[in-house]
Nucleic acid binder design. Sequence first.
DNA 1: TTGTCATATAGGACTTATCCTATATGAGCC
DNA 2: GGCTCATATAGGATAAGTCCTATATGACAA
Lengths: 176, 176
Amino acid sequence: MSRIMSLRHAILGFLSTTPLSGYDLRKAMDASVQHFWPADQAQIYRTLTRLVAEGLVDVQEVDGDTRQRKLHFATAAGLAELDDWLRTIHPVEDSREPFLIKMFFGGCIGAADVCALLLARRGEAEALRATFQGIAASIPESGDLNTVLRRATLLSGLRHVEAEILWIDETLEALK
Amino acid sequence: MSRIMSLRHAILGFLSTTPLSGYDLRKAMDASVQHFWPADQAQIYRTLTRLVAEGLVDVQEVDGDTRQRKLHFATAAGLAELDDWLRTIHPVEDSREPFLIKMFFGGCIGAADVCALLLARRGEAEALRATFQGIAASIPESGDLNTVLRRATLLSGLRHVEAEILWIDETLEALK
DNA sequence: TTGTCATATAGGACTTATCCTATATGAGCC
DNA sequence: GGCTCATATAGGATAAGTCCTATATGACAA
């Protein structure tokens, strides 16, 4: 899919501030970037292994007080790679929207059934909007750069669901 | 990636009205659904082969007046599969946004460089908006169901780039 | 003590898609 | 006659991710 391999860089991003285990990483990602980069657990471990093989990440096996785990650190090369990737201006990647395929061929099932699809999607979008609004409300509107950026990534999701809801209503109107 | 295998159904959708060759299909997709489902040529042929193996599509080798080509038809089973898929309400699939990963870790490169990324993206988004506006202007606002739906898929793209531009401006403002 | 939950890691099989390459022919041009 | 372009099909290698499964331990409760 993505020629861009962002999981690598997301991992490097997390490891740039704190050493983490694969398990920690998964939790951290689920708690922060999940809405724009859902991460598969197996994929995290595989990518981590690969990053180590490439010398961008170092491992340190810790079997101290708790059970055995592998702490991962970004190396200097890893930090350089992250910095480089962050500064590079990549072209907008094209997205795949299965729902629009359905819309496009909606003529096969008729306007009424298309409206049903739109209404179902509207419900999901509203739920998502509420979730985003809730999280956004918990992040201060201004503050340090990281806070502003964290809030911005959330607002991106929010603005897009809002647009989606408006589009659904507009389309529903056009179908009447 | 997509557990949803929409290319199969996009192909069935096209074949539901006209028999097409792989080449025709590619052209048809590039001219219509490309902005929400860019199709790889090799992938079209592979999917076509598979659909034939599954009995959802029939082939007929034509080597008449022009060079040899393979015309593909949707079978009754294919049409049933399409109809079923179109009517099924699938949950909203989660999207991956590499750009938001960059935003999230923008603290590593500083506000000024983050703004540069945002401005570059804004330029691309504006170009895309102009493209969508141009195409949308060429489709009548009302008409038969297919026209309305065709326009709706385009407007979806338009509404989302519009939202993206607004979000970029909002974020640029927050970064000042 | 037995069971189950959270922690912790990872391999295997598979899917979808991308990129590159190979092949072949008809049409039009210079 | 040779050039390139559009038509037309398709394999090979590789990437990225998903789903399922296996393993093992510490903690806590019934």
